[in-house]
Protein backbone atom coordinates (compact mmCIF):
# COMPACT_ATOMS: atom_id res chain seq x y z
CA UNK A 1 0.00 0.00 0.00
CA UNK A 2 0.97 3.56 -0.68
CA UNK A 3 0.72 4.51 2.97
CA UNK A 4 3.12 1.77 4.05
CA UNK A 5 5.51 2.67 1.27
CA UNK A 6 5.55 6.31 2.35
CA UNK A 7 6.09 5.26 5.96
CA UNK A 8 9.02 3.00 5.03
CA UNK A 9 10.46 5.72 2.83
CA UNK A 10 10.25 8.14 5.75
CA UNK A 11 12.00 5.63 8.04
CA UNK A 12 14.82 5.02 5.58
CA UNK A 13 15.33 8.75 5.07
CA UNK A 14 15.35 9.18 8.81
CA UNK A 15 17.93 6.41 9.11
CA UNK A 16 20.08 8.13 6.49
CA UNK A 17 19.88 11.34 8.46
CA UNK A 18 20.90 9.59 11.66
CA UNK A 19 23.70 7.70 9.91
CA UNK A 20 25.22 10.86 8.45
CA UNK A 21 24.69 12.83 11.60
CA UNK A 22 22.56 15.48 9.82
CA UNK A 23 20.38 17.55 12.14
CA UNK A 24 16.91 16.04 12.47
CA UNK A 25 15.11 19.39 12.48
CA UNK A 26 15.92 19.70 8.79
CA UNK A 27 13.95 16.54 8.23
CA UNK A 28 11.10 17.85 10.33
CA UNK A 29 10.95 21.11 8.32
CA UNK A 30 11.18 19.14 5.10
CA UNK A 31 8.28 16.86 5.98
CA UNK A 32 6.23 19.80 7.20
CA UNK A 33 6.72 21.61 3.89
CA UNK A 34 5.77 18.48 2.00
CA UNK A 35 2.65 18.04 4.09
CA UNK A 36 1.59 21.66 3.57
CA UNK A 37 2.18 21.30 -0.15
CA UNK A 38 0.15 18.10 -0.20
CA UNK A 39 -2.76 19.68 1.67
CA UNK A 40 -2.69 22.76 -0.56
CA UNK A 41 -2.72 20.71 -3.72
CA UNK A 42 -5.52 18.58 -2.33
CA UNK A 43 -7.60 21.66 -1.46
CA UNK A 44 -6.97 23.49 -4.73
CA UNK A 45 -7.76 20.48 -6.88
CA UNK A 46 -10.87 19.78 -4.89
CA UNK A 47 -12.04 23.38 -4.99
CA UNK A 48 -11.59 23.44 -8.75
CA UNK A 49 -13.72 20.36 -8.96
CA UNK A 50 -16.23 21.59 -6.39
CA UNK A 51 -16.91 24.82 -8.25
CA UNK A 52 -17.47 22.85 -11.42
CA UNK A 53 -19.70 20.44 -9.51
CA UNK A 54 -21.72 23.25 -8.00
CA UNK A 55 -22.32 24.77 -11.39
CA UNK A 56 -23.27 21.43 -12.88
CA UNK A 57 -25.63 20.59 -10.03
CA UNK A 58 -27.22 24.02 -10.07
CA UNK A 59 -27.54 23.72 -13.82
CA UNK A 60 -29.24 20.38 -13.80
CA UNK A 61 -31.50 21.32 -10.91
CA UNK A 62 -32.61 24.24 -13.04
CA UNK A 63 -33.06 22.21 -16.24
CA UNK A 64 -30.00 23.64 -17.90
CA UNK A 65 -26.69 21.93 -18.69
CA UNK A 66 -24.26 24.17 -16.79
CA UNK A 67 -20.78 24.72 -18.25
CA UNK A 68 -20.25 22.73 -21.44
CA UNK A 69 -17.80 24.50 -23.69
CA UNK A 70 -14.44 24.51 -21.90
CA UNK A 71 -13.01 21.02 -21.87
CA UNK A 72 -14.98 17.81 -21.70
CA UNK A 73 -18.29 18.44 -19.85
CA UNK A 74 -16.94 21.92 -19.16
CA UNK A 75 -14.44 20.49 -16.68
CA UNK A 76 -11.86 23.15 -17.45
CA UNK A 77 -14.34 25.99 -16.93
CA UNK A 78 -13.11 26.75 -13.43
CA UNK A 79 -9.53 26.81 -14.63
CA UNK A 80 -10.46 29.28 -17.35
CA UNK A 81 -12.36 31.41 -14.85
CA UNK A 82 -9.44 31.31 -12.43
CA UNK A 83 -7.15 32.51 -15.18
CA UNK A 84 -9.54 35.31 -16.06
CA UNK A 85 -9.84 36.39 -12.45
CA UNK A 86 -6.07 36.40 -11.98
CA UNK A 87 -5.58 38.61 -15.02
CA UNK A 88 -8.03 41.22 -13.80
CA UNK A 89 -7.02 44.60 -12.53
CA UNK A 90 -6.34 44.70 -8.82
CA UNK A 91 -8.74 47.37 -7.55
CA UNK A 92 -8.50 48.79 -4.06
CA UNK A 93 -11.24 51.37 -3.45
CA UNK A 94 -10.03 54.91 -2.79
CA UNK A 95 -11.63 55.08 0.64
CA UNK A 96 -10.49 51.65 1.72
CA UNK A 97 -8.33 50.91 4.71
CA UNK A 98 -5.54 49.56 2.53
CA UNK A 99 -3.76 47.13 4.80
CA UNK A 100 -6.84 45.64 6.33
CA UNK A 101 -8.40 45.36 2.91
CA UNK A 102 -5.41 43.45 1.57
CA UNK A 103 -5.06 41.23 4.62
CA UNK A 104 -8.71 40.20 4.96
CA UNK A 105 -8.78 37.53 2.22
CA UNK A 106 -5.61 35.97 3.63
CA UNK A 107 -6.99 35.90 7.16
CA UNK A 108 -10.00 34.10 5.72
CA UNK A 109 -8.05 31.64 3.61
CA UNK A 110 -5.30 30.49 5.95
CA UNK A 111 -7.54 28.98 8.67
CA UNK A 112 -9.59 27.16 6.05
CA UNK A 113 -6.39 25.42 4.98
CA UNK A 114 -5.16 24.87 8.54
CA UNK A 115 -8.21 22.77 9.38
CA UNK A 116 -6.76 20.09 7.12
CA UNK A 117 -3.88 19.54 9.51
CA UNK A 118 -6.01 17.25 11.65
CA UNK A 119 -8.35 15.68 9.10
CA UNK A 120 -7.52 11.98 8.70
CA UNK A 121 -7.54 11.08 5.01
CA UNK A 122 -6.84 7.42 5.56
CA UNK A 123 -5.31 5.10 8.15
CA UNK A 124 -2.33 7.04 9.45
CA UNK A 125 -2.52 9.67 6.71
CA UNK A 126 -2.94 12.79 8.73
CA UNK A 127 -0.66 15.76 8.84
CA UNK A 128 -0.72 15.90 12.62
CA UNK A 129 -2.85 13.77 14.93
CA UNK A 130 -3.44 16.39 17.60
CA UNK A 131 -4.86 15.19 20.89
CA UNK A 132 -7.13 18.26 20.92
CA UNK A 133 -8.23 17.85 17.29
CA UNK A 134 -11.81 19.04 17.70
CA UNK A 135 -10.83 21.98 19.85
CA UNK A 136 -8.31 22.97 17.20
CA UNK A 137 -10.94 22.86 14.44
CA UNK A 138 -13.40 24.86 16.52
CA UNK A 139 -10.75 27.47 17.25
CA UNK A 140 -9.86 27.85 13.59
CA UNK A 141 -13.48 28.09 12.52
CA UNK A 142 -13.90 31.26 14.58
CA UNK A 143 -11.25 32.96 12.46
CA UNK A 144 -13.85 33.56 9.77
CA UNK A 145 -15.46 36.31 11.86
CA UNK A 146 -12.45 38.66 12.04
CA UNK A 147 -11.67 38.13 8.37
CA UNK A 148 -15.18 39.02 7.21
CA UNK A 149 -15.30 41.93 9.65
CA UNK A 150 -12.00 43.16 8.29
CA UNK A 151 -13.24 42.85 4.72
CA UNK A 152 -16.50 44.62 5.45
CA UNK A 153 -15.03 47.38 7.55
CA UNK A 154 -12.06 48.17 5.34
CA UNK A 155 -14.10 48.33 2.11
CA UNK A 156 -15.66 51.65 3.16
CA UNK A 157 -18.99 50.55 1.73
CA UNK A 158 -22.27 50.41 3.60
CA UNK A 159 -23.35 47.14 2.02
CA UNK A 160 -20.04 45.55 2.94
CA UNK A 161 -20.32 46.78 6.48
CA UNK A 162 -23.79 45.37 6.86
CA UNK A 163 -22.64 42.06 5.47
CA UNK A 164 -19.72 42.01 7.87
CA UNK A 165 -21.87 42.77 10.89
CA UNK A 166 -24.36 40.15 9.84
CA UNK A 167 -21.58 37.60 9.51
CA UNK A 168 -20.23 38.42 12.95
CA UNK A 169 -23.64 37.93 14.54
CA UNK A 170 -24.31 34.80 12.55
CA UNK A 171 -21.02 33.03 13.07
CA UNK A 172 -20.91 33.71 16.78
CA UNK A 173 -24.42 32.37 17.29
CA UNK A 174 -23.77 29.23 15.31
CA UNK A 175 -20.40 28.47 16.84
CA UNK A 176 -22.09 27.47 20.07
CA UNK A 177 -24.51 24.80 18.79
CA UNK A 178 -21.82 23.57 16.39
CA UNK A 179 -19.39 22.87 19.21
CA UNK A 180 -22.10 21.43 21.44
CA UNK A 181 -23.05 19.02 18.66
CA UNK A 182 -19.41 18.03 18.25
CA UNK A 183 -19.18 17.53 22.00
CA UNK A 184 -21.87 14.84 21.82
CA UNK A 185 -19.54 12.86 19.60
CA UNK A 186 -16.61 13.57 21.90
CA UNK A 187 -18.54 12.28 24.89
CA UNK A 188 -19.30 9.04 23.07
CA UNK A 189 -15.75 8.56 21.84
CA UNK A 190 -14.14 9.76 25.05
CA UNK A 191 -11.47 11.70 23.16
CA UNK A 192 -10.89 14.93 21.30
CA UNK A 193 -8.49 13.19 18.95
CA UNK A 194 -10.04 12.58 15.51
CA UNK A 195 -8.32 9.23 14.99
CA UNK A 196 -9.75 8.05 18.32
CA UNK A 197 -13.22 9.14 17.21
CA UNK A 198 -12.90 7.05 14.06
CA UNK A 199 -11.60 4.12 16.08
CA UNK A 200 -14.56 4.44 18.43
CA UNK A 201 -16.92 4.30 15.46
CA UNK A 202 -15.15 1.20 14.16
CA UNK A 203 -15.75 -0.45 17.52
CA UNK A 204 -19.48 0.38 17.64
CA UNK A 205 -21.48 1.96 14.78
CA UNK A 206 -21.36 5.27 12.95
CA UNK A 207 -22.16 8.08 15.33
CA UNK A 208 -24.82 9.20 12.87
CA UNK A 209 -27.03 6.47 14.39
CA UNK A 210 -26.10 7.22 17.97
CA UNK A 211 -26.28 11.00 17.55
CA UNK A 212 -29.01 11.73 14.98
CA UNK A 213 -30.07 14.95 16.70
CA UNK A 214 -26.49 16.00 17.14
CA UNK A 215 -25.88 15.35 13.48
CA UNK A 216 -28.79 17.52 12.38
CA UNK A 217 -27.67 20.33 14.65
CA UNK A 218 -24.10 19.97 13.42
CA UNK A 219 -25.13 20.02 9.79
CA UNK A 220 -27.37 23.09 10.08
CA UNK A 221 -24.78 24.95 12.11
CA UNK A 222 -22.02 23.96 9.73
CA UNK A 223 -24.02 25.26 6.77
CA UNK A 224 -24.40 28.54 8.63
CA UNK A 225 -20.70 28.55 9.47
CA UNK A 226 -19.71 28.14 5.86
CA UNK A 227 -22.13 30.91 4.76
CA UNK A 228 -24.13 28.80 2.37
CA UNK A 229 -27.77 29.27 1.38
CA UNK A 230 -30.14 29.34 3.25
CA UNK A 231 -27.66 31.06 5.59
CA UNK A 232 -25.73 33.14 3.08
CA UNK A 233 -26.71 36.39 4.75
CA UNK A 234 -23.23 37.97 4.83
CA UNK A 235 -23.22 38.13 1.06
CA UNK A 236 -26.99 37.92 0.38
CA UNK A 237 -26.93 38.97 -3.23
CA UNK A 238 -30.51 40.18 -3.55
CA UNK A 239 -30.31 42.25 -0.37
CA UNK A 240 -26.76 43.44 0.16
CA UNK A 241 -25.54 43.43 -3.45
CA UNK A 242 -22.63 41.16 -2.53
CA UNK A 243 -22.23 41.80 1.19
CA UNK A 244 -18.72 41.81 2.56
CA UNK A 245 -17.09 41.24 -0.82
CA UNK A 246 -18.93 43.97 -2.72
CA UNK A 247 -15.73 45.92 -3.24
CA UNK A 248 -13.49 42.93 -3.86
CA UNK A 249 -12.59 41.96 -7.37
CA UNK A 250 -10.08 39.92 -9.27
CA UNK A 251 -7.55 37.96 -7.30
CA UNK A 252 -8.69 39.05 -3.83
CA UNK A 253 -12.25 38.12 -4.58
CA UNK A 254 -11.12 34.75 -5.89
CA UNK A 255 -9.42 34.03 -2.58
CA UNK A 256 -12.70 34.63 -0.78
CA UNK A 257 -14.35 32.35 -3.27
CA UNK A 258 -11.68 29.73 -2.73
CA UNK A 259 -12.13 30.02 1.03
CA UNK A 260 -15.86 29.46 0.74
CA UNK A 261 -15.34 26.17 -1.02
CA UNK A 262 -12.42 25.13 1.13
CA UNK A 263 -14.67 25.69 4.15
CA UNK A 264 -17.42 23.66 2.55
CA UNK A 265 -14.99 20.84 1.92
CA UNK A 266 -13.59 21.09 5.44
CA UNK A 267 -17.07 21.04 6.93
CA UNK A 268 -18.02 18.02 4.84
CA UNK A 269 -14.91 16.04 5.64
CA UNK A 270 -15.27 16.80 9.34
CA UNK A 271 -18.88 15.64 9.18
CA UNK A 272 -17.73 12.47 7.48
CA UNK A 273 -15.12 11.92 10.18
CA UNK A 274 -17.38 12.65 13.11
CA UNK A 275 -20.59 11.00 12.02
CA UNK A 276 -19.89 8.54 9.21
CA UNK A 277 -16.76 6.85 10.52
CA UNK A 278 -14.25 8.80 8.42
CA UNK A 279 -12.13 6.63 6.16
CA UNK A 280 -13.32 3.32 7.60
CA UNK A 281 -15.41 1.10 5.36
CA UNK A 282 -15.43 -2.30 3.73
CA UNK A 283 -13.99 -3.43 0.37
CA UNK A 284 -12.80 -0.08 -0.97
CA UNK A 285 -9.52 1.53 0.07
CA UNK A 286 -9.92 3.88 3.08
CA UNK A 287 -9.06 6.97 1.09
CA UNK A 288 -11.85 6.27 -1.38
CA UNK A 289 -14.30 5.89 1.48
CA UNK A 290 -13.18 9.21 2.86
CA UNK A 291 -13.75 10.93 -0.48
CA UNK A 292 -17.15 9.29 -0.99
CA UNK A 293 -18.38 10.30 2.44
CA UNK A 294 -17.05 13.83 2.09
CA UNK A 295 -18.67 14.29 -1.28
CA UNK A 296 -21.93 12.95 0.05
CA UNK A 297 -22.08 15.92 2.41
CA UNK A 298 -20.91 18.26 -0.30
CA UNK A 299 -23.74 17.13 -2.52
CA UNK A 300 -26.21 17.52 0.31
CA UNK A 301 -25.07 21.08 0.91
CA UNK A 302 -25.35 21.92 -2.77
CA UNK A 303 -28.75 20.33 -3.08
CA UNK A 304 -29.97 22.43 -0.17
CA UNK A 305 -28.46 25.56 -1.63
CA UNK A 306 -30.34 25.26 -4.90
CA UNK A 307 -33.64 24.48 -3.22
CA UNK A 308 -34.15 26.83 -0.31
CA UNK A 309 -34.70 30.58 -0.10
CA UNK A 310 -32.63 32.69 2.25
CA UNK A 311 -33.59 33.01 5.88
CA UNK A 312 -33.89 36.48 7.43
CA UNK A 313 -31.32 37.78 9.86
CA UNK A 314 -33.52 37.86 12.97
CA UNK A 315 -34.94 34.43 12.16
CA UNK A 316 -31.41 33.17 11.83
CA UNK A 317 -30.70 34.35 15.36
CA UNK A 318 -33.92 32.81 16.60
CA UNK A 319 -33.10 29.49 14.99
CA UNK A 320 -29.61 29.52 16.45
CA UNK A 321 -30.30 30.61 20.00
CA UNK A 322 -33.87 29.51 20.59
CA UNK A 323 -33.91 26.20 18.76
CA UNK A 324 -30.51 24.75 17.92
CA UNK A 325 -28.82 25.71 21.19
CA UNK A 326 -31.45 24.11 23.50
CA UNK A 327 -31.68 21.06 21.27
CA UNK A 328 -27.92 20.67 21.26
CA UNK A 329 -27.78 21.11 25.03
CA UNK A 330 -30.49 18.50 25.65
CA UNK A 331 -28.71 16.19 23.24
CA UNK A 332 -25.46 16.63 25.13
CA UNK A 333 -27.10 15.99 28.50
CA UNK A 334 -28.91 12.90 27.24
CA UNK A 335 -25.71 11.60 25.69
CA UNK A 336 -23.83 12.25 28.93
CA UNK A 337 -26.44 10.43 31.03
CA UNK A 338 -26.43 7.57 28.57
CA UNK A 339 -22.65 7.25 28.68
CA UNK A 340 -22.51 7.39 32.48
CA UNK A 341 -25.16 4.71 32.81
Amino acid sequence: MLVDWVASLYQSVQATFVAHGWPLWVLAVLTAVLKVAGVLVWILLNVLFLIWLERKISGHVQNRPGPVYTGRFGLLQTLADALKVLLKEDVIPAGADRWVFVLAPLVAFVPSVMIWVVIPFSRGVQAQDLNIGILYVAALASFTVPSLLMAGWSSDNKWSLMGALRSAAQLISYEVPLILAELGVVVLAGSLRLSDIIAAQQRSVWFLFLQPVGFVVYFIAALAESNRTPFDLPEAESELVAGFNTEYSGFRWSIFFLTEYANLLGMASLAATLFLGGWSGPFLPPFVWFVIKTYFFVFLAMWIRWTLPRIRVDQLMDLGWKFLLPVALVNLVVTGVFVVL
Partner: peptide, 16 residues
Amino acid sequence: FALDMGATTPFLYSFR
Protein backbone atom coordinates in the same frame (compact mmCIF):
# COMPACT_ATOMS: atom_id res chain seq x y z
CA PHE B 1 -39.97 37.17 -6.18
CA ALA B 2 -38.31 33.84 -5.39
CA LEU B 3 -35.03 35.30 -6.60
CA ASP B 4 -35.44 38.25 -4.24
CA MET B 5 -35.97 35.81 -1.41
CA GLY B 6 -32.71 34.09 -2.26
CA ALA B 7 -34.06 31.02 -4.04
CA THR B 8 -32.68 30.89 -7.55
CA THR B 9 -34.25 27.71 -8.83
CA PRO B 10 -37.95 28.73 -9.04
CA PHE B 11 -36.91 31.53 -11.39
CA LEU B 12 -35.67 29.07 -13.97
CA TYR B 13 -38.72 26.85 -13.59
CA SER B 14 -41.12 29.73 -14.09
CA PHE B 15 -39.20 30.90 -17.12
CA ARG B 16 -39.46 27.44 -18.59
